[in-house]
Design a protein around this nucleic acid. Structure first.
Ligand SMILES: NC(=O)c1ccc[n+]([C@@H]2O[C@H](COP(=O)([O-])OP(=O)(O)OC[C@H]3O[C@@H](n4cnc5c(N)ncnc54)[C@H](O)[C@@H]3O)[C@@H](O)[C@H]2O)c1
Ligand SMILES: NC(=O)c1ccc[n+]([C@@H]2O[C@H](COP(=O)([O-])OP(=O)(O)OC[C@H]3O[C@@H](n4cnc5c(N)ncnc54)[C@H](O)[C@@H]3O)[C@@H](O)[C@H]2O)c1
Lengths: 252, 252
DNA sequence: CGCGATTTGTGCACGCCTTCACAAGCGCCT
DNA sequence: AGGCGCTTGTGAAGGCGTGCACAAATCGCG
């Protein structure tokens, strides 16, 4: 059942008992819960019901309760969840209390925007290095960081204990960059370049492909159009919602 | 909402009357297949086996065959799939042959990068309008397009038959922008601002949240770290592989 | 001190998705 | 013409995730 016996809050690393074996689908939703909780905290709320939090996160309340129960959650029946406690719990599970160092490779159009993005810092990450291979880019100052040459990756990654790398280079060089990241000891990669990366099984890759998102939307447009052309005036019904998420990663 | 009526698909002989009812999971993978196919076509390949295409797209070959079978695919046993035919089929299904018009709202850091992204055009979309509310931004020329004020959205959306909108504004204004898009007749939204959007049930929303991706990676880092702290050198085993993918969308 | 209102945690059933395994179909070679 | 090897398409099984419905737990109040 519930092992609430775990009176210790996050912050301690030595004797982490058994790491909870969360379903991937749950993991993908935790960040959304966290964002909603932070928002609630700002409004002064001290507790939230599963119903309230679910609404704020755009999910079903039963699903939310099950998700939270998986991480041996602290909730009080008849009352709800303690906001700040839950925030701490989720941040601990996600490892955000480590304020992980992130590096960004490819300071072009997109990389520039990412380098200046405040959402990194506010959500538990530190961008500690920028890399590029273009001599015109190397040396440039962006948002307080100097663009380094990719050749320095290995050294700097070690110095700064970088575990996460973001790839924002053209598709053709993405695999090369990924190899370099892996060689430098990076074990998590977020890839913005279209295409499939091949990495060792202990490295996790997540991919963001704008065109894929648009194409999925396009499909639904196509579908909607072909339905409109049909008989029944199938219009908007009272469908609750649906705001899924997921992806998966490699592992070994 | 009135789009030209399209008769039938590019390579269809017998007639594909009803719109195929594809599983969401399949739809999410079709764009990846398409990208892989385009790549193969460039290398001169005329046919591909499910095994080959699956490898190029980073999925299981059985899954790929089932996916393609859902859209009544044309493959030849003992030979494989005809590349160009399959490209045409998937593009038709995804509605890419309509070269859909897309508008972008919020020409800031991220919006600027998106506005200049060549990947839109090359994958079946036309960015036809940019919007912002900042007087300093309105009127600016970006990549051949003039930034318009959001107030012009409704008129321009109608003129250009814009069905897809991209939101790249600060989180606080995302809902307002979404409402404006919906009012202008946009029925598909790609949202880069963190948070949950509320839209009518006939509007599809897909969300891209960088911080969520990083947090998921962070979780796996955390997990990997806690495993490393365990018993013997249980390093890499003979785990085949695993390629992710997925997300979902609203519908109705 | 007990009762009712409230909300969590979860057993269970259902449906979707993945994966295996194999028969059917196709081209080629002899 | 016939056989052989290759590849597709799919039936069936298993796993995962979702959502319902409800018992258990807790609080506030009389
Ligand atoms: N711009 C966008 O809005 C956008 C959106 C989605 C995806 N993408 C993808 O993101 C990637 C980057 O897009 P972009 O528009 O910024 O391209 P870009 O050409 O503007 O920038 C690419 C940068 O990567 C650098 N680079 C090239 N090879 C490198 C290497 N081996 N090591 C390190 N750096 C290297 C280049 O010098 C350049 O600065 C592309 O794969 C693109 O498809 C871009
Ligand atoms: N910059 C990034 O790399 C990045 C990455 C991921 C997500 N995001 C998200 O994307 C969004 C935009 O980020 P950004 O860095 O470009 O911010 P930004 O502040 O640079 O740009 C926001 C732009 O939106 C405009 N705007 C504000 N209110 C508007 C409205 N009501 N209608 C139209 N335009 C409006 C502003 O004038 C500004 O030009 C944010 O929600 C951010 O969280 C950004």
């Amino acid at each position: 059942m519930s092992q609430q016996r775990h009176g210790s809050t996050p912050g301690e690393a030595g004797g982490v008992p058994a790491f909870p074996d969360l379903p991937e689908a749950t993991i993908a939703r935790l960040p959304e819960y966290l964002r909603a909780l932070h928002h609630l905290a700002e409004t002064g709320a001290e507790t939230v019901s599963s119903e309230g939090l679910a609404a704020a996160a755009g999910v079903n309340s039963a699903k939310l309760r099950k998700d939270l129960s998986h991480l041996g959650s602290y909730g009080t029946r008849g009352v709800g969840y303690d906001v700040s406690l839950l925030v701490a719990q989720i941040e601990y599970i996600l490892g955000l209390d480590e304020n992980r160092a992130v590096c960004l490779v490819g300071v072009g159009n997109l990389g520039h925007a990412l380098a200046g993005y405040a959402g990194f810092a506010s959500r538990g990450f530190r961008v500690v290095a920028l890399f590029d291979t273009d001599p015109k880019k190397v040396g440039e100052q962006i948002n307080g960081l100097t663009v380094r040459h990719l050749d320095d990756l290995e050294r700097i990654a070690a110095e700064e204990s970088i575990a996460i790398g973001v790839i924002a280079t053209p598709p053709g060089t993405a695999q090369t960059v990924a190899d370099a990241l892996v060689a430098a000891g990076v074990t998590s990669i977020l890839n913005f370049a279209p295409g499939v990366l091949s990495v060792p099984s202990n490295v996790d890759v997540r991919k963001v492909d704008l065109a894929i998102e648009l194409q999925i939307l396009s499909f639904h447009e196509h579908r909607k159009a072909s339905l409109t052309a049909l008989p029944g005036g199938r219009a908007a019904a009272a469908s609750p919602d649906k705001q899924p998420e997921d992806q998966e990663a490699v592992g070994s």
